[in-house]
Amino acid sequence: MTSQVDLREAADETVIAISGELDAAASAGLRDRLIPLIPGSSMIRLDLAGLTYISSAGLRTLLLVYRHAQAEGSAIRLVGIRDEVRFVMSATGFLALFGIEEIR
């Protein structure tokens, strides 16, 4: 199963939804698709509600997104993280890089 990226833009934010499995194979291609979607000086929400698995390569991809957003002066939030993904991100310390929003 591969991952999928959907983009939604609103007046004051960009929402990038990543769904599926972010494994090593998916991560390589995802990087090239994600980076151009990151605007400057904006709020970016990564909607992970549909993300069912994240690998080490996937974590590094998120790190890339984080670094790129920082460079663009954008803030970044994670939304709707599933428990299994949250566990992996927390255990590896990657979760601490991001602000987290819960789905209400």
Partner: peptide
């Protein structure tokens, strides 16, 4: 320790 299962390697954080 960071265990990278994709690459089957271990690397070490700078610290905490």
């Amino acid at each position: 320790r960071f265990t990278d299962y994709d690459e089957d390697v271990v690397y070490w954080y700078h610290g905490i």
